[in-house]
Structure formats: structure tokens, C-alpha cells
Amino acid sequence: MMILEQFFNLDYPSWWFLVIFGLFAGYAILDGFDLGAGAVHLFLKKKNSRRIALNAIGPVWDGNEVWLVIGGGSLFAAFPKVYAALLTSFYEPFMIFLVMLIFRAVSIEFRSKEPMAWWRKMWDISYCLSSICMSLLLGIFLGNVLLGIPIDADGNFHGDPLFFFNPYSVFVGITTLSLFMMHGAIYLVMKTQEHLHQKLRIIVRDTTIFFIISVLLLSFYTILYVPRMSRNIQANPWLFFIPVCMVLSIANITRQINRNKFISAFVFSAFTMVLLFLTVVIELFPVIIRSSIDPTYNLTIYNATASIRSLKIMSVFVIIGAPLVMSYTAFVFYTFKGKVKLDETSY
């Protein structure tokens, strides 16, 4: 392996592998809760409940989506071959993902613009379905990345266009959906009060059960049918602390809910996502996309990387930009802290 310039004992492609996964983890944590809030939206039956739920994410969902844009742009810049291979392999599902993203954005925006019940109901349904569809697809993309994609030496896709729809990836999709639903429900519990709050507590309980069932089944499925995925953890027993932490973290979510510590529950739900991403990182590194045709076609951080100069330039962007982005995010969340109160500017 070639010797590359290092930054704090880690070469630049490795750093950027971590940065990209960090960005997508950030996206999952942030947009995850508003996608989840969307996915449970139709469980709320009252008109006013739906309105409050929508306004709970109102000021922040657009900022959350920025993480997808930054993640996508960074992937494009840091690993252009991976960006190209992923998007061409998932051509149809990704186009559907984009259309769902558009529908979701306009549903939130358009819903409040007309008072008619049918109008609002139509956008409620469109908001909920597009959120569910996006969550499922995000999971399906991740599942296929874990499983491997039929790409050749040039990163060109050679497979059935419907290859993405395989049982394992669908399992990952469902688990992602359940995780987002739980995460979103906890966020809504945090932002609501009285009757709606009580109703959401039930939804939190149900979605948590949904998530625990999904994640257990996914784990069994992985261990039984895709055993190579636990190879790294088998080889390094000390890494077993990650599944241990994950189980404890999930258990702690329910514990914190029962103690009415919703912020803490939300933090642990986010922490669970970080641990899940950490598992993915450990499993993949240093491969980013495994070729299911031939392992020598794998796209790794070393054969898919942009030039080191480009990575260095972007590292400067991150060092300057990250504190800025965090401060805007913190400012917005701080401004809209506490329970949702509707006013004339609300959706």
C-alpha cells in the first residue's frame, strides 16, 4: 500500500471516509427525526395534533436536509468514483427518492396554504407516505452498500436494475424506518404537551417495540445469512463493546421515557444511530463499495479517492465550516426550544 501524507496519524482518505460517514450519521440523526415525525404523522388523528406535529419540525427540517446536500457534495468531491457508482447503480430508486423528497418538501409547505379538509388530508397523506418511502429507501441503499453491488473494474454497474430490492436490504430498510419512527416520535413527545403528548407516548412505546423487533431480526439475519459482516468483530473481540453499548443504549431510551426525561431519551436514540453507523464503518473500512462481481473491483478509500490536494482543501472547508454550521444549528434549535406554540406564522 502506498504511503500517504498523514494528519494526526491517519491518512487523508481515511479521514474523509470518517467525515463522510460522520456527515451521513449527522443527516440520519437530524433529518431522521423529521422523517420519523412524518412517518408517524397519520397516527395522529386530530386536525390540531397534526398541525402541532408539523410545526414541531417546521423551523428545522430544511436545515436538517442540508446535511444530505453536504454529505452528497463531500462524497462527490472526496470519492468521485463512489458517488458515480452509487448513483448509477441505484438509478431508478434514487430518482424515486428525489421525487419523494420533492413531494415531502412541498407537502409541508403547501398543506397550510388552504383551509379545506380534503386539501390538508391530501398533503398529510403525501407527507407521511413520502417520509416512509424516503426512510425505507435510505435503508435499502445502506443495505446494498453492506451487501455489495455488481460493479466492474471501472465502477460501472452490471446487474438487474431491480437488484436493489433484495431481502437483506429490505430488512435494513424496515429497520431504518422503525428507527426513524422511534426517533421522530421521541422528538415529538419532547415538543408537545397535554393530550397530544399522552398520545405520542403510546406511539413512542409502539415504535420502540417495532424498532427492537426489526433490529433483532436484522441481527439474526446478518449473523445467519451474511456471516462475513460480523468478521471484523469476530476477529477483534474487544469490538463486542459496540453491540453491548447498543443494547444498553436502546434499553436506556425506554427507561428515560418512563422517567419523563425526553431530551435524554432523544440523545440516546441519536447515540444508537451513531453506534449503528460505527458498526457500518468498522465492517466496511477501508472498502466503501464492495463489488459483488469480483473483490478486486472493490472501491476502496485508496483507489476511489480524489487527489490528496483536493482532500486537503476540503479539510480546510470542514475546519472552518463545521463550527459555523454547528453554531447556526444550535442557534435555531435554541430559538425554538421548548413546547410548540402555534401563532400566526405557523404552518
Binding site: 430544511d62 442540508v66 452528497g72 457534495g73 468531491a77 472526496a78 470519492f79 472547508f317 459555523l324
Partner: peptide
């Protein structure tokens, strides 16, 4: 990607995050 991608990433970090935030 090496050239164009960094401009897109910069747009996300320095511009889009600011306006959407």
C-alpha cells in the same frame, strides 16, 4: 469530482447551511 465536487461541498457548508439554518 476533484475540482467541481469541492465547489459543491463548499456550497453546502458555507452557503446552504447558512440560509437554511
Amino acid at each position: 469530482g476533484d475540482v467541481f465536487g469541492s465547489a459543491l461541498a463548499a456550497e453546502g457548508i458555507f452557503a446552504f447551511a447558512l440560509e437554511s439554518g
